[in-house]
């Protein structure tokens, strides 16, 4: 079973990721910010990460840069949750090493489609 790590300071988003992806056969682990995300990443070695960008303690961009430098985060898909209003954030995330992005707001179909696309 493939594991997806969701990092978001919003519980509703974390829940949504879980409720959407679990029935599709993925195991979900969650973290509330980038720093927590890094710990979970190292402990759980997920197959994919879905991370928010705007978070307290450590934001998504820092998380992505750190994850890419880590053995557990190199080569796995990391998807960032972005908003249409901040295209420059998308660019920052890409250069930090994000694989892709999901524009907020998103629905569960979109989330499943992106996960399947990146995990096969």
């Amino acid at each position: 079973m493939k594991t997806v790590l969701t990092i978001d300071d919003s519980k509703s988003v974390r829940d949504m990721v879980m409720f959407t992806l679990e029935p599709e056969g993925y195991r979900i682990v969650a973290a509330e910010n980038g720093a927590e995300g890094l710990e979970t990443l190292r402990a759980e070695k997920p197959d994919m990460v879905i991370t928010d960008l705007n978070m307290p303690v450590m934001d998504g961009i820092d998380f992505i840069s750190n994850a890419r430098a880590d053995a557990a985060g190199s080569g796995i898909p990391i998807v960032m949750l972005t908003t249409e209003s901040s295209p420059e954030m998308k660019e920052k995330g890409k250069s930090a090493g994000a694989t892709g992005w999901i524009n907020k707001p998103f629905d569960s179909d979109k989330l499943v489609a992106v996960t399947k696309k990146l995990l096969g």
Partner: peptide
């Protein structure tokens, strides 16, 4: 300011996903 922005950002973003489009 960041904290306020984040709160609003979350409500806006999640609202449209969870059947609260008008709020969003």
């Amino acid at each position: 300011v960041d904290e306020i922005f984040r709160a609003l950002h979350t409500i806006k973003g999640s609202g449209s996903m969870f059947a609260h489009t008008a709020l969003s």
